[in-house]
Write a protein that binds this DNA or RNA. Structure first.
Lengths: 356, 356
DNA sequence: ATGAAAGCGCTAACAA
DNA sequence: TTGTTAGCGCTTTCAT
């Protein structure tokens, strides 16, 4: 008889087996069961067999929370600043693939707005994950140093010099340079830069990176430098939001301007695809307004999109981030800084301007 | 002095404050602190002030694991069968938005292959989440009934009759019918169906839904029924994998066939976009081979893609799923079944066949 | 209004 | 090789 049977309208919830239940069923001690499930040293063949049979019979699954109280959670946390951005999905996919062969489970703490990065990171810390991989360009380095003092951390897409955590990033400088050289070589002079949303929010510990070492600040800086070197007036527009549609909305007025740009360098591919939405929506093509992006997300290679973009090897970035994190959990304490080489994928979205 | 200072190469990890530290700092009992952080009844204004100051000073954050041992985790789990599918991202985005105004934190258990659904679900159970939302078409209903007996569950995209869990799904039958009627009306007769990967894997508790009540089985059945009613020979091809590129690979041979189909009904939009990749890659357009999909993912409305698709209101599905889950956590025990109405978004990817 | 103390399920140090 | 036991950080009666 279940002693937690329903009383009135209260829902019956069966109690799942605990390690004590397994121990009783197998006629051994809790410690013995614990050793079996952890593959620890000092269990006879007979003991193992009996215990495993009981585990199977009772469908026993150790509670992660109880394990956490005594040690590790075998959980790794991934924080990505925007669910739905395919570059971030790729990193998550790579991490999931790599971890499939390990005892670690990945959990993703999703946020809708990069500004909430610290909240998501804190929630992972509160859950005592064994390690954290984060794409959080806007969180302050000091805060991260503090975080990394509590739990192993690998940051993606940052170029910090921290000694507390590892970084894996694409070569943003080289990538942006290749884009600018490509556009200039095609004959473009009126080149606009489509930047991420940098509007600030009130409150909270996080703040806009003041270092200028986040990917988007670097890409924009390279843009400014190239325009300056050529004596061309820069034109930066900011998307208000992080979705593809937000980028399109920001580009529409650009296209209506009297002397509209002949090329747009978008800070990342979601923005670039949005820019293409505006360009195509206005009945224009690459000869009118070329568009180049960054990340080389899967849709960029689609023949109907054919977006020129900087491939920064997102899958490899995710894979290496996990590898570094596992190393760090394994005991490494010196910081590693990885910069992935980039390749410009030239496609149909960039072409010589019609009037050149 | 930190009594856990580094010894040799061992990394120093600062011990985070516990409820006891806060209690000591404020000169009160642990119970008092607990009451303050839970906003429980019976704390004087003075007590609250003192405790909150100590919490602030020590940067105290309650450990979720310890709370779980005594009650709830204030964590909800979302399982999605494929990271990188924009329909699933939309559901995750909706869930994140709704939960932002609640004390619950969402964690996503990502998988790469729908067949691993039960592993991800089990991992959420092991973490004692307070509720689960899952998009898991292939997990058996019995297993889910069992799961739902342990934790509140809302399933997305299932049309089960279970009394143990709620379901939220689009109207797959109506959606598929609208697609078929649209294609037939345009004059198509050689219509192919591009199905999801149904190859089986060995082992594990999950198995292919034998009920035929999962969305893709329904969409395919409707396709068969319409083709049969018109006396047309059905042609079903299966993608080997779940990525857009896998769909393109499956479609390429179709296009090379002597009497190729004039239209392709893809089981979901990622497959449809892949089909468009193959069609455009072969230098064909909608007059040669029309393509229609299901889900109306954001890229479908992009003018360069312009994919005809069934809008099943993914965002609303995610929102309602969370709402139902919170209701269930709040005590509701009777099962709710929601079917979201669908709308066919007719766009440029479907057109009358050239030779009609 | 406040505090003392039991106990959630597990691991690890130690004893047998 | 196996079992006993302390204790992780919190919530929750139950006294005071």
């Amino acid at each position: 008889m279940d002693d937690r049977s329903s009383h009135g309208a209260v829902l019956t919830r069966r109690r799942a087996a605990t390690i004590q239940d397994v121990a009783d069923a197998a006629g051994v001690s809790r410690a013995a069961v614990s050793k079996v499930i952890r593959n620890a040293y000092g269990v006879s063949e007979q003991m193992r067999t009996r215990v495993e049979a009981a585990i199977e019979r009772l469908d026993y699954h150790p509670r992660v929370a109880a394990r956490v109280m005594r040690g590790s959670s075998f959980t790794l946390g991934l924080e990505i600043p925007q669910i739905g951005n395919d570059f971030h999905s790729t990193i998550a996919a790579a991490a999931t693939d790599v971890l499939a062969a390990t005892p670690y489970q990945l959990v993703i703490a999703p946020i809708r707005d990069p500004q909430q990065g610290d909240r998501a990171l804190q929630s992972l810390v509160d859950r005592q994950v064994d390690g954290i991989i984060a794409v959080a360009p806007l969180v302050s380095g000091d805060w991260l140093d503090d975080l990394a003092g509590r739990v192993p951390v690998v940051m993606v897409g940052r170029h910090d010099e921290s000694t507390e955590y590892d970084t894996v990033a694409g070569d943003d400088e080289a990538g942006a340079e290749q884009v600018m050289e490509h556009l200039v070589e095609l004959g473009h002079r009126r080149i606009a830069f489509l930047d991420v949303d940098r509007s600030r929010r009130a409150g909270g510990k996080p703040f806009i990176s003041p270092t200028g070492r986040d990917p988007h600040s670097i890409r924009r800086r390279v843009y400014y430098e190239h325009m300056g070197a050529l004596g061309l007036p820069p034109l930066v527009v900011e998307a208000h939001g992080h979705m593809e549609e937000d980028a399109a909305a920001a580009v529409v007025p650009l296209l209506a301007a009297p002397s509209r740009p002949t090329a747009i360098f978008a800070g990342h591919d979601m923005l670039a695809v949005g820019a293409l939405r505006a360009v195509a929506g206005a009945g224009l093509d690459a000869r009118d307004v070329s568009v180049a992006g960054f990340d080389d997300i899967p849709i960029a290679s689609h023949p109907l999109i054919s977006l020129t973009s900087v491939d920064q090897q997102g899958y490899a970035i995710g894979r290496e981030a996990v590898r570094l994190l596992l190393e760090r959990i394994g005991g490494r304490t010196d910081a590693v800084r990885m910069v992935m080489p980039v390749t410009l994928r030239v496609r149909g979205s960039t072409a010589p301007p019609r009037d050149s």
